[in-house]
């Protein structure tokens, strides 16, 4: 892979790639299409995946402290350009947009293959992504890419510090947190505890329009067509059913006996 090894002579410049995904708005009703059982992306409002804003913010903060360049990488249909523009207007320097009909229906494993090809052509010290996307909610892109690119995986970070060629994170665990350390280049995924994302300024929005945006097809990125897309996905949806929305249950107002009322309900369901 192409990356600049840390050079103390040059200084602490940190080049960062941020992976950003466009997702359906979580408030929108999301549906699978009957035809190919993939998400009906045309039918919904789309936004930048919430946690990716935190990933962009973290990259910008590291850049502001150390110098370097922030590159946005997005895989997604043409309209994902809106999301890329937002990241650029927050302050990222440039962007790469991988967009190709052939990618439609790719599973997480294929997506990680495609992204690894794009990353392989870029120079970076860190790759930062959000801990999960609100649509697929898998939380596995960081380990998938770490495995493919042979990079250390620093996932679930609620704090990141970069010092020279060493990066440390605090990783949330089930009983507290771990401090995990690796040498750059490394891949980091962040949780929303890590910072407070900035809003794009008017100046930022204007500047974003002039920032370099490279569009790549799969051929440009050296991605083999038979390794991506629905036809060769590593798992297949056999059937799906839209579940009726959860039926609202019984709502009772407290008349001084609220505790007893809840207890009676719990007893009726055999919880006590």
């Amino acid at each position: 892979m192409l990356h600049a090894p840390f050079d103390p002579e040059v200084g602490a410049h940190v080049n960062i790639v941020v992976l950003v995904k466009q997702v359906p708005d979580t408030w929108a009703e999301r549906k699978l299409q009957d035809s190919d059982k993939t998400l009906d992306r045309a039918a919904v409002d789309v936004v930048m995946n919430e946690i990716d804003e935190y990933a962009v913010e973290e990259a910008l903060q590291i850049k502001e402290a150390s110098g370097g360049e922030v590159t946005i990488v997005t895989m997604g249909p043409d309209r994902a350009v809106e999301t890329i523009r937002k990241a650029l207007s927050m302050g990222a320097d440039k962007a790469v947009h991988l967009s190709d009909e052939a990618l439609h229906g790719s599973c997480a494993l294929q997506t990680s293959y495609a992204l690894s090809k794009v990353l392989g052509s870029l120079e970076f010290d860190l790759v930062i992504c959000g801990s999960e996307s609100t649509d697929a909610r898998l939380s596995i892109m960081a380990p998938l890419l770490a495995e493919r690119l042979g990079l250390p995986q620093l996932s679930g970070a609620r704090k990141v510090t970069v010092e020279g060629g060493t990066v440390r994170i605090e990783r949330q665990t089930e009983s507290g947190y771990d401090v995990v350390e690796a040498s750059t280049p490394a891949i980091i995924s962040v949780v929303e505890k890590i910072n407070e994302p900035r809003y794009p300024s008017f100046k930022g929005i204007m500047a974003a329009k002039k920032k370099p945006l490279t569009s790549l097809t799969i051929a440009d990125a050296g991605i083999e067509a038979d390794k991506v897309g629905l036809a060769s996905a590593t798992s297949m949806v056999e059937s799906f059913s839209n579940r009726p929305p959860r039926q609202a249950g019984q709502i009772v107002k407290d008349e001084g006996d609220g505790g007893v009322k809840v207890a009676e309900f719990l007893a009726s369901r055999k919880f006590i």
Partner: peptide, 12 residues
């Protein structure tokens, strides 16, 4: 999708 859709899927 937050419990709204139930999917049956298989590794291929």
């Amino acid at each position: 999708f937050g419990g709204g859709v139930e999917v049956k899927a298989k590794v291929t």
